[in-house]
Design a protein around this nucleic acid. Structure first.
Lengths: 346, 346
DNA sequence: CTGAAAGCGCTTACAG
DNA sequence: CTGAAAGCGCTTACAG
C-alpha cells in the first residue's frame, strides 16, 4: 500500500513509514508486477496509441509525428508510458486495424487508448464501445448511438474565416476542393465554407478535390472561379499546375489552403510559397488527447455507475491562421477572359 | 489453445476445429486478456523500448529516429507491439532512468526490452541482470561479470580503414578528436585509429575532442597536423572554424568524419560539404536488435536451464563508408608553414 | 489424449 | 484499523 499513491493511503501512513518501506523496496530489489496489478483491477500507467500506419515513417508522410510529440510530452508529464499499436500498412495477413484477433487482447495491457489516423474504421469503433474500452480519438468522429470522445481541430471556423476573407476581397465565384469529401474533417470544412457564402447569398461551387492538381485547376478555369479553397494534400500540385500554365497566385487566382501539408513542402522548381491558410494544432491535439483519456480513466475508476461530473469529452482546438500572399482581389474581367481561354485551349 | 500458435498446437488441432473456434471467438466478441496470460507465464507480444530522452524530438536531436524506424519495421514484421519507456530529459523528480521505482514494475509488461541511448547507466544494467530481465542494448556495452547482449556498429574497422586511407595519402601527422572519449563507441574508434598508425609506426596524436570546433582546430594547427579524424558531433564546427581562418579541406587539412551527424547538417553559410567518413547503420541496428531480443525470448522459453544453442548475442554491423572530398595528400612544407603561422597568429 | 486443479502477484471486499 | 481470503483470467504441470 505504501507504494500506491492516492489520497486514502496518504492519510493512513506517516511519511516516515513510507520512507522506510521505500528503502526496503530499494534494498530487496523488489520490482512489483504490473501485469498482476492490472489483472486484479488496478491500472497499469500505460496508455495505448493506435495508428493505422507506422509512426516512424521512412520518407513519406510525417502525418503522425507532431501528434506524437504532443502525446509523448504530455505522457511524460503524467508519468505514464506509451504502448504503440502500429497497424501494418499492407492490409493482407489479417492484421488490419485493431479488429484482428491477435491485436485485441493486447489492448487490455494499456489502461486506455488514443486512436490516430485519417481513416476511421467504423468496425473498430463499434468494438471498442461494445467492450467498454476507454479511448479517445484524435479527429472528430461520428457514430450513431454513442457519443465519441475526441479531440478535433476547428476546421469549420478556420474555413469560415478564410472563405469570408475571400468574400471581403470581392470574390463572387469561390470554389471548394476537398480531398476526402466524406471524411468528418472535410465535412467540417464544407460547413464553414457554406456558412460564409450563405451570409452573402453566394453560390457554393464544389469541385472534385480528389482529382490531380492539374484537373482541379482545369475545373476551376472551366467554372470561371476567381478564388479557390483547397485542402493541403493537393495545394502544392495545384501550384505546379498553375505554374505550367504561367498562372500566378493571387493575380490570376486567389487560393487559400485548408490545413498544412504533412511534410515540409519541398518547394521544388518554383520555390517556397507563402500560403494564406490555416495550420492544424497537431501537437496540442496530441497533448489534449492524453489529458482527456487520463480524465476518462479517473472518472471510470471513481464512480463507474453514476454519471461522473467530467469535463467535455468532445474538444475542438482552434486552427492557426496564417496570412500569406496567395489571396488578393479578383482579376479584372479582361484578364479573367484571357485566362479562361488559355486554360481551355484544346 | 486453438488461439495459440506454436508447433504442438498445430498438430493437435485440425484446421477445421481451429476455424470454428476462431469463428466463435469472432461472434462472442471475446478479447482475451494478455495481462492474465502474462501473469500466468505466457508472453505478451510486447517489446519495450527504453530511451533516455523523448523519441519524438521537437527540433533538437533526431538521434533515436532511424533506430526506431528499424525497430518498428521489424516489430511490425514479427507482429509484436512496442512499449515506449521514455525517460524524462530533466533529471529531477526521481524519474531518472529505469531505476526509479515506478518505472520498474512496468518493464514486466513487456516480454523484454531494447535499451537505447548514448549514455549507459551502469546501475540500470546491473538491475536488469539481477532480475534476469531480457534486454538488448543498441551500441556496445561493457560490464564486468556478465556478457552484455548488444547490437553495435563497426566503429573500429571503419575508423581503421579511414585512418589507413590517410596514411596511404602520405600523411604522417594524423590527429584524433573524440567527443566522448570514455564511451565504448569512441574507445572503438580509438582502437581502429591506433591499429592503423601502428602498422606504419606513426605516432598517435590525440586532441581534446570535447572542446569546440575552433579549439580543436587550434590544437591541430599547434601540433602541425596534416590530417584529422573527428567524430561527427564536432565536424561541422570544425568546418566553420576552418572557414573563419580561410582554411580549406583537403588543401590545408585532410579530415575524415567518424560517423554521421544526428540531424541533417544545415550547411549554413559555407554550404554542403561532401565528407569523407562513415555512416552508422542505425536502421539495421534497430531491426537486428528486435531480432536478437526475439531470439533471446524464444531461447529462454524453450530451455531456461540448459545452454541454449543461440546465435551470438553480440553483433557488430559494418558502417557505411562514404568517399568524399575532404581528404587528399598533405600540403607541401611551404604551405604547411604558412598555415601554421596563420593559425597561431596572436 | 483429456480435463480439473493449482498458481502467477496483485487488489478489493469482507470478516475479525 | 488490521489481516486473511477470494478472485482477476490465464498457463502449465499433473492426475485421470
Amino acid at each position: 500500500m505504501a507504494l500506491n499513491t492516492g489520497p486514502s493511503t496518504r492519510t493512513r501512513l506517516t511519511d516516515e513509514t513510507r520512507e522506510r518501506v521505500l528503502a526496503a523496496v530499494e534494498e530487496t530489489g523488489y520490482w512489483g508486477n504490473l501485469a498482476a496489478r492490472n489483472l486484479a483491477g488496478g491500472s497499469t500507467s500505460v496508455l495505448g496509441v493506435f495508428t493505422y500506419e507506422p509512426v516512424f515513417p521512412h520518407e513519406s508522410s510525417d502525418f503522425y509525428y507532431p501528434f506524437l510529440q504532443g502525446i509523448e510530452g504530455e505522457a511524460l508529464h503524467h508519468d505514464v508510458d506509451l504502448l504503440l499499436f502500429t497497424s501494418s500498412p499492407s492490409q493482407d495477413s489479417g492484421r488490419e486495424g485493431l479488429t484482428s484477433w491477435a491485436r485485441r487482447g493486447r489492448l487490455r495491457l494499456a489502461d486506455g487508448c488514443i486512436l490516430l489516423g485519417r481513416h476511421s474504421h467504423r468496425r473498430d469503433l463499434a468494438e471498442l464501445i461494445a467492450h467498454d474500452y476507454p479511448y479517445v480519438f484524435i479527429g472528430r468522429r461520428e457514430t450513431d448511438g454513442a457519443e465519441v470522445p475526441y479531440v478535433a481541430a476547428g476546421y469549420e471556423d478556420a474555413t469560415f474565416i478564410l472563405t469570408r476573407r475571400l468574400v471581403d476581397h470581392g470574390h463572387h465565384r469561390i470554389g471548394l476542393a476537398l480531398e476526402f469529401p466524406d471524411h468528418e474533417s472535410d465535412q467540417d470544412r464544407r460547413r464553414g465554407y457554406r456558412r460564409a457564402l450563405q451570409q452573402e447569398h453566394l453560390e457554393p461551387i464544389e469541385l472534385d478535390g480528389t482529382a490531380t492538381g492539374a484537373a482541379i485547376l482545369q475545373q476551376a478555369l472551366e467554372r470561371r472561379l476567381t478564388a479557390l479553397a483547397i485542402t493541403a494534400g493537393r495545394a502544392a500540385e495545384l501550384h505546379h499546375a498553375m505554374d505550367d500554365l504561367s498562372l500566378r497566385m493571387p493575380a490570376d487566382l486567389s487560393v487559400v489552403r485548408l490545413g498544412d501539408p504533412e511534410k515540409a513542402d519541398a518547394g521544388g522548381a518554383n520555390g517556397h510559397l507563402d500560403w494564406t491558410g490555416f495550420g492544424v494544432p497537431r501537437q496540442d491535439m496530441g497533448a489534449e488527447a492524453v489529458r482527456m483519456l487520463l480524465r476518462r480513466l479517473r472518472d471510470k475508476r471513481r464512480t463507474d455507475g453514476s454519471r461522473p461530473p467530467t469535463a467535455s469529452l468532445q474538444v475542438t482546438l482552434p486552427c492557426h491562421l496564417s496570412d500569406g500572399s496567395t489571396i488578393g482581389p479578383p482579376p479584372t474581367p479582361t484578364t479573367d477572359f484571357h485566362l479562361t481561354m488559355n486554360g481551355l485551349a484544346p
